[in-house]
Amino acid sequence: MTTFGRGLRTLVLATVLTIIVALALVFFYAPLDADQGFIQKIFYLHVPLAIVSLCGFVFGGLLAIGHLRTRNRAWDMRSYVAIHMALIFGVGGLITGSIWAKASWGHWWDWSDPTLTSFLIVLLLFATYQPLRFSIEDPERQARYASVFAVVAAAFVPLNFIAVRLAQQFVHPRILTLGGGNLPGSMRLTFLVSLLGMALLYATLWKYEMTAKNARIQVRRLRRSLLGDDSVRPLGRSAAPS
């Protein structure tokens, strides 16, 4: 195993174990919700996906600060992978949320709900991150502009969250609050284990992709230094850092 992948195996094992425990708790331990019944089981998947996705966007922004401060392209790549992973988790959160909405409210989407709409706005905002990168050919400029975008967009996430919390009318239930919320103990434990599993999955996939990208970059560098520049195919325009 390369140095980039150090600790990946442990992380994978911890993730698989936590997700198995989380699934067992969801289906065999957590009681059925009095209002929603069995459909509430989607909560243990949808909410962790959405939370990890939003945290991933903020994480990407923080890593982008590292790039802007040091000009080290490795930070740009970390930020790129963090945002890329958060987008995947965000799409998962959106789809599972829609399925839950259909079962619970009778329709796939509710434009009047600030939580749903704001999440979509954040997702669409970050969906423009890759086209932005792709539109810039010079790798240095691409990394710099993408980092600035990531920082600004990441700052939008908590602002958006606060704005939604302050909104008076909402149909999304508020079950997780600083005051403890109104989740019973067994449901709270199940939710926290699910959240931990999802966070570990995000970390594992982030590390996995980072390892793969680093390996690819190392191969290109080796090829260039050992066989000369002519033997390395030009990358062309790419959204991914190289």
Binding site: D33, A34, D35, Q36, G37, F38, I39, K41, I42, L45, H46, I95, T96, I99, W100, K102, A103, S104
Partner: peptide
Amino acid sequence: ALAPGKAAPYVIAA
């Protein structure tokens, strides 16, 4: 609340 029989396909789908 949906009956477990009706809710199951949604949960499985998610």
